[in-house]
């Protein structure tokens, strides 16, 4: 029982980061039908900014807003340079464009920094834990969960209570109709990329605090987790993306602690394989989005 509760808390902490990443991917999928394989690059760029800033003696307190600004700016630049040019293209083109962006960004760091791992110092409290009864809880997980909840509440308010949120949801439901109703596609799409960058920035702060290092291809892992979580939740559903993120985090923690010794190192592989099986039985994800094709 205690172990299960412990897993639950660990899983929530891990899942929070995935949920933020998945939400950012779902927001863009909603307005552009683009599954963004370049989402992890926001964390790669933030990672190298962290290496530089911490090396220059900046404190983590100042680095946090810097990472978030970097992430939003990178997201907007990528939209401007690449994705704005393929708006309305078919899914095949969109997928490969984001794949191409991933490679160009990581290749730039390969070219101008190096292929090797760059380390930076993590804040001291990341490894601290405290106990409630027999539970061992990381300070880090606690912060992550609280910040994530606040972010999700904020995002919900943004989507429900503001004109931008309404425009975004309308565009996600039916982009063409939304445009006919006066929604400006440019500003909605840029807003979506900014929001996606903001969410990735918050996730990135935690991701980098935990990792303490970066490489040119560091974006692959967060991208994959975010994409899978968004898909598990049901592509196109924002609520589903968040649910999918938590589900993925829990699945990872549960498997890692339950798999027998030999298989524990294969946790990631087993999780991906389970996800593939999950899709066979529920191809639309947890919250299936009804899409009827007009005949």
């Amino acid at each position: 029982m205690t172990e299960l509760l412990q897993n639950l808390i660990d899983g929530l902490g891990r899942g929070s980061i995935y949920a933020l990443l998945a939400l950012g991917i779902a927001v863009i999928f909603g307005v552009m039908h683009l599954l963004n394989f370049a989402h992890g690059e926001l964390i790669t760029v933030s990672g190298y900014v962290s290496v530089w800033a911490l090396g220059a003696g900046l404190s983590w307190w100042l680095l946090v807003p810097l990472i978030i600004v970097t992430s939003v700016a990178t997201s907007l630049i990528i939209e401007r340079v690449a994705f704005s040019r393929v708006r309305g293209a078919n899914d095949f083109t969109l997928l490969l464009t984001s794949f191409g962006v991933h490679f160009v960004v990581s290749a730039i760091f390969l070219l101008y920094v190096s292929a090797s791992v760059k380390n930076f110092s993590r804040p001291g409290w990341v490894a601290d834990t405290y106990s409630i009864g027999s539970l061992n809880i990381e300070v880090f997980d606690t912060v992550v969960i609280i910040v994530t909840i606040l972010t999700l509440v904020g995002t919900t308010l943004l989507l429900q209570r503001t004109m931008f949120g309404l425009a975004l949801r309308a565009a996600a439901a039916d982009f063409d109709t939304a445009r006919l109703m006066g929604v400006k596609s440019d500003s909605v799409i840029r807003g979506a990329f900014a929001l996606s960058g903001l969410l990735a920035g918050i996730a990135g702060v935690f991701w980098l605090m935990r990792a303490g290092s970066t490489t040119p291809s560091a974006g692959i892992d967060p991208m994959l987790k975010g994409v899978l979580a968004a898909l598990i939740g049901g592509l196109g559903s924002l609520r589903g993306a968040v649910l999918g993120g938590f589900a993925l985090g829990l699945a990872e923690v549960l498997l890692r602690s339950r798999l027998p010794g030999d298989l524990a190192s294969l946790t990631e592989g087993v999780v991906f394989a389970l996800i593939a099986v999950f899709f066979i039985f529920r191809p639309g994800g947890i919250l299936t989005v009804a899409t009827a094709e007009r005949v």
Binding site: A82, L96, F99, G100, V101, F103, V104, A107, L111
Partner: peptide
């Protein structure tokens, strides 16, 4: 610079997609 070929491949992908 070294690894220029990786940039070449990524940029080729992007340019053709666009």
């Amino acid at each position: 610079r070294e690894n220029l070929q990786t940039v070449f491949l990524g940029v080729s992908m992007l340019l053709f997609m666009i």
